[in-house]
Nucleic acid binder design. Structure first.
Length: 922
RNA sequence: GGGCGCGUAACUCAGUGGUAGAGUGCCACCUUCACACGGUGGAAGUCACAGGUUCAAGUCCUGUCGCGCCCA
């Protein structure tokens, strides 16, 4: 690709992202490699074709893309499969709304024409979310794009339906279903949202028929209007109050009907209310079950339009449920039968789509018998074939699978997979077939018509891991990519797709659809509440990308990926990661300005291929940063492997900002200047380039755009390839790649174990640590003494330890440079710091600022006094701890030893500070 | 009602029994030749509360309170 070596002063994501993404995509980089390397396959949970990207999608895509890119760089056959879901109700409603604007209805235009409209709409307005995934940098293999209504999916749906029907796992039945009168369709249990609402509990007196004493039986209900459909009253068989009434009848008010009083120990709880319960089998799931047990009549008084119908008494027919309730209550009141009204909390089920209250109504529908499917899905997780993270979510999965009810899959919609069943007008038989039949399979009659209903969208999305790989075609890709590696999604929809994909995947292939299920938390608004349009707390990821860049958003989401509670969105943090990107950019800008003349291959040959003498050519800082960069690569991989994207991101952030930028770049400036010794300059140039190469590879999976852009502009080893996307990850060793000191990496530095263990690298680490302590403390002293940072001062350090002195000597020049000191003098055991001196003590080193005439001795005494008091307090605590016999006896020896070391160091430091305090007090 | 998770600096979050951390914000200072989307230094904590286990608890156990999500 064309790359400019020009670095703007500020990183501008908008300039690089779109062209870079197009380049990756057009080069075919998103397609899996050939060969027999292990595969890493992920199916993107299919978003609605009508959908817009929200923070949950962005989180899923970021986590998945990070892991997919990581595996791709590790040489695995990485495949990430995109696509969308036809979203039955949502899409149909959207097109119906459009028609309504033209004054039309779907019934008016007819089924065929309506479906044409929907397809038209889908072509025009669908798939926006795909473009939004592109903006996120998602390395999805678009060449394998799938839509749940396309040919492959349709064939799969038909195959699955027919097979399940043949196996007796799909059946048709007349029973209570959740009816959404807004969308005029049945719903599955999961499409009903329950909300707690303030309601009433009404007590109604039902006169006992033919009672000589005028006895009345009081029932309590939250839905008085349904009494018009009552076909029994139930009491508990053990309830002594009502023994004499069992088998008698009730004169059902307002209807003129007589209904039996029955005994039922499942429906009735003796302690609740009056102990007598009205039974309305047509309008309540529990009552429906009771009706089955007692062979009760089913009287449906509420119709599919939310209005009362016959055989309800004529005066109520045509009333809405709400109006009927008012009328019934008024009539009962007038009849003196309404005995009590109480406040009562109840849970109301609303349609997830249309928002109307869902009415349980009796209807003939198609169902999946999920028991046998759930059993296998349960066992797969129990056996560990599929592992769920975080682990505690496994219990939710079990509980749900164990209590699952049969799944109503027919929908009275037009947009969806039409049920492959044909009804015979002659004999009434139903023919279920893979290919459209022309005659009834029973009687051979030609007068057949296809079932009007379509399947629940989830029926097709449940087949997603199969259809995305081409199932059920003969030449499908299941052998190469199934079971997939990972399903990543929010824990709130574990049951929607994850559970269904598990059931179908196992049933049709015998293998789990995914090895790992990784569930992330919900992204909440800045007000800590679930994002919703009505609350107005929705954050749009695309506008965040516009403002801060894709990488900033991705990095933020990575740092949140480990959250177990809700993720409370924080714009400030996204901004912080935007700043991080800019920091990285500017560090690279600096490097690009300093790397002229670098011959990287020569450097690699001299330094890396011959570490024995090569390391000698590097500065202390070079050796240190090289070791740190390699340690980061290993640490990062380890954390990704543990699903801790947050910790990995944090480690990389700390390295880039607080080691690479804060210290290494500063330390290297002198050796990188044009007038530096050419050999030294070259050694440091090579280190700088190599460290950048390493850190860019490490960060690429999380922040792909900026890392690729920089990588293209900085020198890199020959044979690294054309794109960072496909460059080798400096990976933790695979099996056989060596252990300990012998372990090697595939990235720019091969002998990682040996390098990290090299005594010279270890020593460099200690030296730089010491340098940082000296420089930091001297800055602190200057600031405390109110000396201008611009004014260079003389610095004196003193130590009793010859080894420490030697270490200090190795870094003295560098310390002087980065600390902008006038001079740095190292004193030994026999020397003393000057008297008029501001002092800090750290790690056995006294750091002094002899500020003749500048230091205010009173201030310095105060400051030192405070320090001494602080340390005395710490010392007291430590002595007490070590004086505790139990601690010494029971704590692990290494802990005790560590505390003893601390005590010695603290005593030493305290003694020195006391002495200094005394000296300046003279 | 049941289940799960979370309460750590002003805010957003790490912290895997052994010296309480990061980023942002705040205060002071700095136009140091990569970066003010920057640099240097600093202040800031009853780790929700109450018990318990332990030599040692932010971390483990029990309870209480608060928040969130899922299921019914």
């Amino acid at each position: 690709m064309t790359s400019s070596s020009e670095f703007a002063k500020v990183y501008d994501p908008a300039q690089v992202e779109a062209p870079l993404y197009a380049h990756w995509r057009d080069q075919g980089y998103f397609q899996p490699a050939d060969g027999d390397a292990p595969h890493f396959t992920v199916v993107l949970p299919p978003p609605n074709v009508t959908g817009r990207l929200h923070m949950g999608h962005a989180l899923t895509a970021t986590i998945e893309d990070t892991l997919v890119r990581w595996h791709r760089m590790r040489g695995h056959r990485a495949l990430w499969l995109p696509g969308t879901d036809h979203a039955g109700i949502a899409t149909q409603v959207m097109v119906e709304r459009q028609l309504a604007k033209e004054g039309k209805t779907r019934q008016g235009v007819g089924r065929e024409a309506f479906l044409d409209k929907v397809w038209e709409w889908k072509e025009e307005h669908g798939g926006i979310i795909d473009e939004q995934h592109e903006r996120l940098g998602a390395s999805l293999d678009w060449s394998r794009y799938r839509f749940t209504m396309d040919e492959v999916s349709s064939r799969a749906v038909r195959e699955a339906f027919v097979r399940l029907h043949e196996q007796g796992l799909i059946y048709r039945d007349y029973r209570l279903i959740n009816w959404d009168h807004g969308s005029q369709t049945a719903l599955s249990d999961l499409e009903v949202e329950h909300t707690e609402t303030d309601g009433k509990l009404w007590h109604i007196a039902y006169p006992v028929a033919d009672s000589e004493t005028g006895e009345r039986l009081t029932v309590a209900t939250t839905r008085p209007e349904t009494m018009l459909g009552d076909t029994a009253v139930a009491v508990h068989p053990d309830d002594e109050r009502y023994q004499h009434l069992i088998g008698e009848h009730i004169e059902l008010p307002l209807t003129g009907r007589k209904i039996p009083i029955i005994a039922d120990d499942i429906l009735v709880k003796m302690g609740f209310g009056t102990g007598a319960v009205k039974v309305t089998p047509a309008h309540d799931p529990n009552d429906f079950a009771t009706g089955k047990r007692h062979d009760l009549e089913l009287i449906q008084v509420i119709g599919f339009d939310n209005e009362f119908i016959e055989p309800a008494p004529a005066k109520y027919v045509g009333l809405t449920v709400q109006a009927a309730r008012k009328a019934v209550l008024a009539d009962l009141e007038a009849a003196g039968l309404l005995v009590e009204t109480k406040d009562h909390k109840l849970s109301i089920g609303r349609s997830q789509r249309s928002g109307v209250i869902v009415e349980p109504l009796p209807s003939t529908q198609w169902f999946v018998k999920v028991g046998p499917l759930a059993e296998k899905a349960l066992a797969a997780v129990e056996q560990g074939d599929t592992v769920i993270y975080p682990q505690h979510r496994t219990a939710d999965y079990y509980r749900w699978m164990e209590n699952i009810r049969d799944w109503c899959i027919s929908r009275q919609l037009w947009w969806g997979h039409r049920i492959p069943a044909w009804h015979c007008e002659s004999c009434g038989a139903i023919t279920v077939a893979r290919e459209d039949p022309s005659a009834c399979s029973e009687c051979g009659g030609a007068d057949i018509h296809q079932d009007e209903d379509v399947l629940d969208t989830w029926f097709s999305s449940g087949l997603w891991p199969l259809t995305t790989l081409g199932w059920p075609a003969e030449d499908n890709e299941l052998p190469r990519f199934y079971s997939t590696s990972l399903m990543e999604t929010g824990w709130d929809i574990l049951f929607f797709w994850v559970a269904r994909m598990m059931m179908f995947g196992l049933h049709f292939t015998g293998e789990v659809p995914f090895k790992t299920i990784f569930l992330h938390s919900m992204v909440l608004g800045e007000d800590k509440r679930k994002m919703s349009k009505t609350k107005g707390n929705v954050v749009d990821p695309v506008s965040l990308i516009d403002t801060y860049g894709t990488d900033a958003l991705r990095f933020y989401l990575c740092t949140m990926a480990g959250q177990d509670a809700g993720i409370v969105f924080s714009k400030a943090r996204v901004e912080g990661y935007r700043n991080f990107c800019n920091k990285l950019w500017n560090a690279a800008r600096f490097a690009s300005m300093k790397l002229d003349g670098l011959e990287l291959e020569r450097w690699r040959a001299e330094i890396l291929d011959d570490p024995a003498t090569g390391l000698e050519r590097l500065s202390t800082a070079d050796r240190w940063i090289l070791g740190r960069a390699l340690a980061l690569a290993e640490d990062f991989a380890q954390k990704l492997g543990d699903w801790r994207l947050d910790l990995a991101a944090h480690a990389a952030y700390q390295f880039v900002w607080h080691e690479l930028c804060d210290w290494y770049l500063e330390l290297s400036k002198r050796r990188l200047s044009a007038d530096a010794d050419p050999a030294e300059r070259h050694a440091t140039q090579g280190t700088l380039a190599t460290v950048f190469d390493l850190v860019l590879r490490v960060l690429h999976p999380m922040i792909p755009f900026i890392t690729e852009t920089i990588w293209q502009r900085l020198p890199r080893p020959a044979g690294s390839g054309d794109s960072l996307m496909l460059a080798a990850w400096p990976c933790a060793p695979e099996a056989g790649a060596g252990e300990g000191d012998a372990r090697t990496l595939a990235g720019p530095v091969a002998q990682v174990g040996a390098l990290l263990a090299d005594a010279r690298v270890v020593e460099a680490g200690h030296d730089i640590e010491r340098l940082i302590a000296v420089v930091t403390n001297h800055r602190m002293l200057k600031a405390e003494s109110k000396v201008s940072p611009a004014q260079p001062v003389d610095v004196v350090v003193r130590t009793d330890d010859a080894a420490v002195a030697a270490s200090l000597a190795r870094v003295a020049e560098s310390a002087q440079f980065v600390g902008r000191m006038k001079s740095l003098t190292i004193l030994g055991a026999d020397d003393q710091l000057p008297k008029a001196c501001s002092v800090a003590v750290v790690g056995g080193v006294e750091i002094g600022l002899p500020l003749e005439g500048l230091v205010d001795l009173d201030e310095e005494r105060k400051r030192l006094g405070k320090e001494v008091a602080k340390k005395e307090k710490a010392l007291g605590g430590l002595e007490k701890k070590l004086g505790n016999e139990k601690f010494v006896a029971k704590a692990p020896p290494e802990v005790v030893a560590k505390e003893r070391e601390r005590l010695v160091a603290l005593k030493d430091s305290l003694a020195k500070q006391r002495a200094l305090l005394e000296r300046i007090s003279q």
